[in-house]
Each structure stands twice: as C-alpha cells, then as structure tokens.
Computed example of a mutant assay.
Amino acid sequence: MSRPGPKIPPVVLSDAERAMLQSWVRRRSSAQSLALRSRIVLESADGHAIAEVARRLGITTDTVRAWRRRFLERRLDGLCDEPRPGVPRKITDTDVERVIVKTLEETPKDATHWSTRSMAAATGMSQSAISRIWRAFALQPHRAETFKLSKDPLFIDKVRDVVGLYLDPPERALVLCVDEKSQIQALDRSQPVLPMMPGVPERRSHDYVRAGTTTLFAALDTATGKVIGSLHRRHRTVEFKKFLVKLDKEVPADLEVHLILDNYVTHKVPAVKTWLLAHPRFHLHFTPTGSSWLNLVERWFAELTTKKLRRGVHRSVQALERDIRAWLADWNEHPRPFVWTKTADDILDKVAAYCRRISDSGH
C-alpha cells in the first residue's frame, strides 16, 4: 500500500489579490507569462488539483507546482520576474531625454534632419545607441510625408454627402466615381530594356523619348468595381460631355446615376449644366477642394499606374491606348470593388485632431 504524499496547502486569496490577478489576465499589455501564472493561481484557488490545472491550461504539473509554491511564499510579488543580472545601464534616462528633445526640437547646422551619425557626434553617444533610442520612440528623422488640408467652406457637408453614398447608396441607382487621368505620356526608353536575370533586376535607361499624350476618362462603379472608360487626346468640356453621353448609353435607363467627381472647371461649365438639365437622372456630388483621396476612382488609377503605366514602354500614343484598353477590359472581366469603411464622423474627427495638433505645434 502506497504512502500518502505530503499535504498540499490550499491557495486562499483575498479580494484584492483576486481582483489584481483577474486584471493581469484581462489586460492586453500583460506579458503572456504573467497572465499564465495568474491563471494558475486562480484555478488553484478555485479548488482544482494540480493535475487538473495543468490539463485545463495545457502545461506540465511541474510548472503548476512551481508557481503555486512561489505564490504561497511571496504572494503577488512571487509571480513577477526577478531582475536579471547584467551590466549596469550606461545610458541614463537623462541621456535618452536629451536625444529625444534634440531630435524633435533642433536640426543640425549642415542638414535639414538628423542622421544617426550626426546625432551621435552631437551627443557623444554611439550610433547604435542613437538607433535604439529612435526605434524605441518610433522616431524617423529621415522620413517625411506630405499632407494638404482642404479650405473648402463646405468641407463637412461634402464629406458627409460623398461618404453617405459609399456607405448607404440609394436604391435603384448607380453610384459612379468619375475623374480624368490626363497627360498620360507614351514613353519609349532611349535604349532597350535589359530583362531580369537571376541575381540581376530588370534595368532600363533613366532617360526616355516622349511620343505624345492621351487622357483617360473613367467611371468606377462602387458596387461592382467595374469601370467605364473612354480615351481622348484632349481634355476639354467637349470630351467630358462625350463621356457623359457614353455613361448615359451604358447605364440602364431605369436607374438613377449619382456621379462623384472633383471640382475641375470642365465639370461646372454652362454646357455641362445644360446637358444635366436635359438628363435629370444624373446627379453630381462634388468632393471638397484638395480632397481627391475621397474619390475611389483615384485608387483605381493607382492600380493602372502601378501595374501598367509606370514601367510600360510605348513608342506611340496608339500603342499606349491599346495597352490601356486591354488592361481595362481585363479588369472588367474580374472586377474588384474598393470597399469604403470610414464613416464621415471618423474622417472629421481625424481631421479635427490633426488641426489641433498642427495649431499647437508652435509653427
């Protein structure tokens, strides 16, 4: 007959300890190891045996036994990792603060922005230390982005109007994002393109020969992703009216047509207004000035540029137009709609926060 083992002392928690352990389990910022240890103690306090706790948490009984014992010996402090031995810190908090302040508030005398080398020379620290500090605080002095805030007095109304069409389109209607990609250049490289080989990327000469330009008028169906396109050599009111006529022919007559477009002058001339009066099913919705990002067809133009135009070689405008038509036809065989997710309030709140940020910057 086997002898019984030593009696295992029970785990009894105070209300404060239980609340703290539960918060460590729920907090997203808690380390996974601390959350697991907290679960071990909570399960043990609920009366589960060591083997049962190990099975429920998918760990070994030795792990349960070790952290159970440490909690009984040192309570909550026993669950936290002890400081590991190592070389004392050489970079103090004051040094870190000095680098951050200098990065954010000063510029070097001989450049527009800091590099790790110039900051190291200015602070007497190593380049690797500067790099670690910048990474820790997500500072990237070598990067710069562009922005533009719309000055349109009807900015809020236009944002709500356009976003409303994206998120809640009207019934028995087609929502089309319309714009022109003008001055598309037919470019031929001055020397033949060298194809890609193993270990060597495709190479092309930096200079090119211009063979002319064309303009693509496009209307993106927000529901299906299909695009109605038309190519013209010029970009005038006449061409825009021709494109409207094309849309009128291709969109079923029983559907209303809502066009989202920018504030380009050809969209607002008297001739276009007269045409719209004769075709009352067409409704125009203008994006705010300086806010082309609100028009989804711009996203489609980016696809066209990236996948066909940027690295294309065309010796004539005719060749360029053939490639664009072929790419458009291929897109419409397998259309992919761009799904808008941001509400108008989300956009306006973000713009307001950015305005507060730049107004408080002191510049």
Rank of each mutant, 00 (worst) to 15 (best):
A120S: 12
D345C: 10
S29K: 14
H279P: 04
V41G: 01
M197H: 15
E256R: 05
R336L: 12
A253T: 07
R357G: 06
P270Y: 08
L139I: 07
S44M: 02
Y354P: 01
W67R: 02
R65K: 14
E303M: 10
R233Q: 08
K242P: 01
A111T: 05
E17Y: 05
R203T: 09
E17M: 07
L304R: 00
V245N: 11
P6A: 09
K241Q: 11
Q140W: 06
L284P: 00
P280N: 11
L284T: 04
T123E: 05
D346L: 01
A19H: 14
A326S: 14
T60A: 14
V251T: 05
A353L: 12
V238T: 09
A278G: 12
V178I: 12
S33F: 03
K308W: 04
V12S: 15
F338Q: 04
F286W: 01
V257Q: 00
D345I: 09
E180P: 03
L309F: 03
R233S: 10
E171L: 05
R204K: 15
T222I: 04
E52R: 10
V272G: 05
D262E: 08
T305A: 15
I347G: 00
H113P: 02
S182Q: 10
I59N: 04
D207Q: 15
E180H: 08
R143T: 06
F71D: 04
S316W: 08
D207E: 11
Q127I: 01
L34E: 06
I50M: 12
A186Y: 00
P335Q: 10
D157A: 13
A49T: 15
R18K: 14
A353E: 11
D110P: 02
P10M: 06
L259W: 00
Q191H: 14
G199E: 14
L194N: 12
P195S: 09
L296A: 08
D46E: 15
A35F: 03
R310S: 13
R172I: 05
R189W: 07
D254H: 08
I324G: 00
K350I: 05
E256I: 01
R89K: 13
F301L: 05
Q191K: 15
L149A: 11
M196W: 15
R39D: 10
L13Q: 04
W275Y: 11
S205R: 14
I228E: 06
L294T: 01
F137N: 08
W114Q: 00
A138E: 12
R18E: 12
V317E: 02
C80M: 14
T146C: 08
V162A: 03
Y354S: 09
Y166K: 03
I50W: 06
R39K: 13
D346Y: 03
S29T: 13
P198K: 13
C80Y: 13
R26T: 12
C355T: 13
I358S: 13
A136W: 03
I358V: 14
S230Y: 06
S30C: 02
Q140P: 01
I358D: 15
D360L: 11
P88T: 07
L13W: 02
D330F: 03
P270W: 04
A19F: 05
V178D: 03
P195I: 11
R68W: 01
W24S: 00
E73G: 12
T224Q: 10
H48T: 06
L284N: 03
D152H: 02
L194Y: 12
A253R: 08
A136S: 10
P9N: 08
H258Y: 08
R281E: 15
L220K: 00
G290F: 01
T341I: 06
P88D: 12
R37S: 02
P201H: 07
I347H: 02
T287Y: 01
I358N: 14
